[in-house]
């Protein structure tokens, strides 16, 4: 079976730039989205958060809260905001190719 990899620009996204289909995601796509939101290079710490949030969404069907991110992603809240200054949960979700988190926390 052959897999066609779509170019990032051709992927379907919502009005805020979140991928419509999480299965379209791959690491190259993540890097493109990161640059788009102002993060030039994804460090190992960024990846830890992005992979955690994506994995949690794929297993539970919803993105974790900032509280859970801080407690369980092994990246503490202060560092989350240093890595993603414009909003850790929102940006990690967008880079991780999952929908925008719906909760208020």
């Amino acid at each position: 079976m052959t897999t066609t990899t779509l170019a990032y620009k051709d992927l379907e996204r919502d009005a805020e730039g979140f991928l419509k289909r999480p299965e379209d995601w791959n690491e190259a796509v993540a890097e493109e989205i990161a640059r788009e939101v102002g993060i030039e290079t994804l460090t190992e710490r960024h990846w830890q958060v992005v992979k955690f949030i994506r994995e949690r969404f794929l297993t539970t069907g919803s993105a974790p809260s900032i509280r859970t991110l801080g407690k369980e992603s092994s990246v503490p809240v202060k560092e989350l905001y240093q890595l993603f200054p414009k909003g850790p949960a929102k940006l990690a979700a967008r880079i991780g190719g999952i929908p925008k988190p719906k909760g208020c926390i």
Binding site: I66, Y81, P85, K86, G87, P88, A89, K90, C104, I105
Partner: peptide, 11 residues
């Protein structure tokens, strides 16, 4: 508190 946390989460 929810408004403050929510604000930070939106940057």
């Amino acid at each position: 508190l929810i408004l403050a946390n929510g604000a930070r989460m939106e940057g």
